[in-house]
């Protein structure tokens, strides 16, 4: 049974200049112990989706419709009080980019972690301290970090602290939104290794969001590709990253610079993503798609099952065969 089921979720921003349909009918499920990678470029709605899952969509955005069913309970519409006391940190926790949103500069690392455990987990001061030391060990930090302030830590150390905090209360699901984007490549690799190890050891269910398909490939069992607020492809990583069914996924992979193997030619996708206040009719990718047919500008494709858990939202799904 899936741990999380998201059904036809729509999250819109009601701005003075129109309604931005940032997440526009997204559905997926997450099995226990599974890593789902959500890939897409800026403005595709992946971060809005992440905020939606923990009930923190910034205004003027809000969830317009759809369900987020966690272990059988729809959490859309739960009050902020309930979300804060019962869901966040305990059931679903989050690792943000650059640790900025998680760490407060005015308290020591240890103090912040202890407070989290006391307030959200009902730990006593003593229990909390013991647990924090254990957590620091598990993310590969020295215990001396406890008495340090965030500004005394390197980027990699800070990100390890936020990972420790995300795991503090043994949540069912950890959402990591661009967890390594602000980091240098060597530190990024160290953090990805850490996430990989923790995921294996603890069987954490992960939602990993990144613009970087290389980062996604490090961890994800399944990959969901978003474009302009919609899911264009979803399936096992081995299929989506090797034999994608959607032209966007294929072209994104071709645009990815390679360090190994022959150099080849770096491709690009002409044009830019659409304005989500007035997305194009039909398939949202069609104005940039070299594989489009006439029908693409008229009919909006929905996800089609290609077998083996592989879904593609393209009018030519199944007919177009790519390999990367």
């Amino acid at each position: 049974m899936p741990l999380l089921v998201v059904e036809d979720l729509r999250i819109y921003y009601f701005t003075g200049r129109g309604v931005v349909r940032a997440v526009d009918g997204v559905s997926f499920s997450l099995e226990p112990g599974e890593v789902l990678g959500i890939a897409g470029e800026s403005g595709c709605g992946k971060s809005t989706l992440a905020w939606g899952l923990i009930g923190l969509v910034p205004p003027p955005g809000r969830i317009v419709s759809g369900r987020i069913v966690l272990d059988g309970v729809d959490i859309v519409g739960l009050s902020e009080d309930v979300l804060r006391s019962r869901i966040r940190w305990k059931r679903i926790s989050m690792i943000f980019q650059g640790a900025m949103n998680t760490l407060t500069p005015v308290y020591t690392v240890g103090r912040q972690m202890v407070e989290l455990l006391r307030v959200h987990g009902g730990f006593s001061e003593r229990e909390a301290r013991a647990r924090v030391l254990e957590l620091l060990d598990s993310v590969g930090l020295e215990r001396g970090i406890f008495d340090r302030y965030p500004h005394e830590l390197s980027g990699g150390q800070k990100q390890r602290v936020t990972i420790a905090m995300a795991l503090a209360l043994d949540p069912d699901i950890v959402i990591a939104d661009e967890p390594t984007t602000a980091l240098d490549v060597v530190v990024q690799a160290q953090i990805l290794n850490l996430l990989k190890r923790l995921q294996r050891e603890k069987g954490i269910s992960f939602i990993l969001i990144s613009h970087d398909l290389g980062v996604i490939a490090e961890l994800a069992d399944k990959v969901m590709v978003m474009y302009a607020g919609r899911v264009v492809e979803y399936g096992p990583a081995d299929i989506v990253l090797r034999r994608p069914g959607h032209p966007y996924t294929y072209m994104l992979l071709r645009a990815f610079p390679r360090i190994h193997g022959p150099r080849g030619r770096l491709e690009y996708i002409p044009g830019a993503p659409p304005d989500l206040r007035s997305p194009p009719p039909g398939c949202r990718f069609h104005p940039r798609c070299p594989f489009r047919v006439e029908e693409c500008s008229v009919r909006e494709p929905s996800l089609r099952d290609l077998g083996g858990g592989h879904y593609v939202a393209c009018i030519r799904a199944g007919e177009l065969q790519f390999s990367v």
């Binding site: 890593v35 490549v185 060597v186 990024q188 690799a189 990805l192 990989k196 970087d212 398909l213 290389g214 980062v215 996604i216 490939a217 490090e218 961890l219 994800a220 069992d221 990583a237 081995d238 990253l241 090797r242 992979l253 990815f256 390679r258 360090i259 190994h260 990367v324």
Partner: peptide
């Protein structure tokens, strides 16, 4: 540096 660069190869996981 080269060893650290992740590529979109699903075998990496």
């Amino acid at each position: 540096l080269i060893a650290a660069i992740p590529e979109p190869d699903p075998a990496n996981r």
